[in-house]
Amino acid sequence: MTEQRYDSRPRQQPPGPGGTYVLCAGGTGGHMVPAHCLALELQARGHKVHLVTDERGLRFPGLFPGVEITKVDAASTGRSGWKSLPSVALSIWKGRNTARRLFKAMRPRAVVGFGGYPALPGLLAGLSLYLPCLIHEQNAVLGRTNRYLAPRVRAIATSFPRIRRMEGSWQRRAHFVGNPVRPGVLAAREVPFDAETTRLKLLVTGGSQGAAILNSIVPAAIALLPAELRAIIDVTHQGRESDRDAMLAAYRAAGIAPVIAAYFPDLPAEMASSHIVIARSGASTVAELAVMGRPSILVPLPIATDDHQADNAAALVAAGAAQMIRQSEFTAERLAQALTLWLTDRQGLGLAAAAARAAGHPEAAKRLANLVIATGLIA
């Protein structure tokens, strides 16, 4: 895999006024946030950005300021299996035709896909018009949509140096750039990590939808900690509102007065002020933990496609920045053991924070933008 092959080329920026670049993303924040970060970087360089997304991609507030958006039809067989294939194919074809008409009028310099089925119609349209196309993979495993597109696009940008499910013949077009993170995460990177402070903050986050297993296991694990360890920790827990009363009761029984909310308006700030983060290992979470340099205990979502969350977590574990507990082994006893390891070893906790920071790629958006612009310049 090539790391930033295009950085040294003298013609990164197109001559004259900035061009238009189309970003194709939708469905989840894991796809939308990196696309948003690339849009900000391209706009800062004087280029115009157009987003092609699906219905779900319109539901993310605060993303893509000043970006024109076109909604296209997109669908996946999902849990319906092959029975839904005809209707899915029709939706993708309709979305592809909508994007194709848009691109004929716009003639973008490049089309960038961010994985997931909502990106497929736009990339198919770009390929059909022989436009420069490339894809970005957020996870440590190449996703199904990106595996389908990989043989057809000009460049494959990756978030990890090593990617599973990457065919050998695709390696020549693969470029390690990292996973772009939000400006708030980059700002939080400047918050120093102090492992010697009197009290340690523990942040638990299962995402905006919460994670039921975290909501039940974490309070139980903290109750198993020795009293002297419980006395030095503060807990902030992002969890479902429906679980709030049970969590609050469990924490109070353990002598903990937690901060519990279903949503934190500035989660990067909460993460930056934490000493240990317990979370799932989605691509954005892993990238943010690394950029900010925060030790973590990661519980991969077992139903994630191709078990990609386990690969994401393994990358931080290998760097010495995280502990991973498979959900099948995620018990109160096991988590209490993992917490004790760091709560009783401040030096080890500090080393894990330094390892996480060393594994981060705060320049990912810039590197991805360089690759996108260079790809658009290749005739």
Rank of each mutant, 00 (worst) to 15 (best):
A174M: 07
H175R: 04
H175Y: 13
H175F: 10
F176S: 01
V177P: 03
V177G: 09
V177D: 01
G178T: 06
G178D: 08
G178Q: 08
G178M: 08
G178W: 08
G178K: 05
N179E: 09
N179I: 01
N179M: 03
N179H: 01
N179F: 00
P180K: 12
P180E: 07
P180R: 09
P180H: 11
P180F: 11
P180W: 08
V181L: 06
V181M: 10
V181G: 12
V181F: 06
V181P: 01
R182C: 06
R182T: 12
R182W: 04
P183G: 13
P183L: 11
P183D: 06
G184A: 09
G184V: 04
G184P: 02
G184K: 09
V185W: 00
V185Q: 08
V185C: 12
V185S: 12
L186D: 14
L186W: 08
L186H: 11
A187K: 15
A187P: 14
A187T: 15
A187F: 11
A188C: 15
A188T: 10
R189I: 05
R189S: 08
R189M: 10
E190H: 14
V191F: 08
V191R: 14
V191I: 05
V191Q: 13
P192V: 02
P192K: 10
F193D: 01
F193N: 10
F193W: 09
F193H: 05
F193C: 04
D194C: 12
D194I: 01
D194G: 01
A195W: 00
A195R: 04
A195Q: 10
A195M: 01
A195F: 00
A195N: 05
E196L: 06
E196F: 07
E196Q: 14
E196R: 10
E196C: 07
E196N: 11
E196I: 00
T197V: 13
T197F: 04
T198G: 13
T198V: 13
T198K: 15
R199P: 04
L200Q: 09
L200A: 05
L200M: 06
L200T: 01
L200C: 05
L200R: 09
K201R: 15
K201A: 12
K201L: 05
K201Y: 05
K201C: 11
L202I: 08
L202W: 04
L202F: 04
L202Y: 00
L203S: 03
